[in-house]
């Protein structure tokens, strides 16, 4: 089942979690992937775990220079992009009353500005007929106490998919957003600022009513596919 044979895919936030699981699945399906992430060590380990057909480029999507460097490398190595998975994102816990300006800026810099320019700067390389996938979150429609900046940033991402679908329709480039629920990724424990107990609780919560269980990252990457 090689649905992506010969395709070139760029995945931001590719060193762990959903991004890494997606990179693995894309490679299984025949794609060449370029993964990017801020943490060099984790990124290298991720690339090693994928083994073939993968290039790792360290960088931060909220830094324009890093994005320029990423796409310059993609251009040099592959010449074009068929699939962009703009997946890098971050969220830290901060109740409204206690949130700082830095918390707000950091969340929107990565999730909104970083994603916006990840897509804009990819456009010259994206083939007509290509596919752009944005990682939103169930929180784009659900309230999430103490994660209001994160939830709002993910609503912005969902909105990008609507506008860009229209802007890119003449190039036959499809834009979709995937909205995962609670996914058991390393980031849940390491970057959210949750205590281990809270992370454990989040991983096993029943969001609103229904989730059967916390998702393995694999079932999420199936959808990106």
């Amino acid at each position: 089942m090689k649905k992506l044979k010969g395709k070139i895919a760029v995945i931001t936030g590719g060193s762990s979690g959903i991004g890494l699981a997606t990179a693995k699945r894309f490679v299984e399906e025949g794609a060449q992937v370029v993964i990017t992430g801020r943490r060099e060590k984790e990124l290298k380990e991720a690339a090693a775990s994928i083994r073939d057909s993968v290039t790792a480029v360290a960088g931060d999507v909220s830094r324009m220079d890093d994005l320029d460097r990423l796409y310059a490398l993609v251009k040099e190595k592959h010449g074009h992009i068929d699939i962009l998975f703009a997946n890098a994102g971050a969220g830290t816990v901060a109740p409204l009353a206690a949130a700082t300006e830095a918390h707000f800026d950091q969340t929107f810099d990565v999730n909104v500005k970083g994603l916006f320019f990840s897509v804009q700067k990819a456009l010259p390389l994206l083939k007509d007929g290509g596919s752009i996938i944005l990682t939103s979150s169930v929180s784009n429609v659900l309230g999430l106490p103490a994660f209001s900046a994160y939830a709002a940033s993910k609503a912005a991402v969902r909105s990008f998919a609507r506008a860009w679908t229209l802007e890119l329709k003449d190039r036959n480039i499809r834009v979709n957003s995937v909205s995962p629920g609670p996914i058991d990724t390393p980031a849940l424990a390491t970057t959210t600022g949750l205590t281990p107990e809270q992370a454990e609780q989040a991983a096993h919560q029943k969001p609103r009513h229904t989730a059967l269980r916390t998702c393995s990252t694999d079932s999420c990457s199936n959808c990106a596919l």
Binding site: L212, N222, C223, L225
Partner: peptide, 12 residues
Amino acid sequence: FLASSDSSFMTA
């Protein structure tokens, strides 16, 4: 896709 386990975390 919805019939298969590729959508195993999707319900509702």
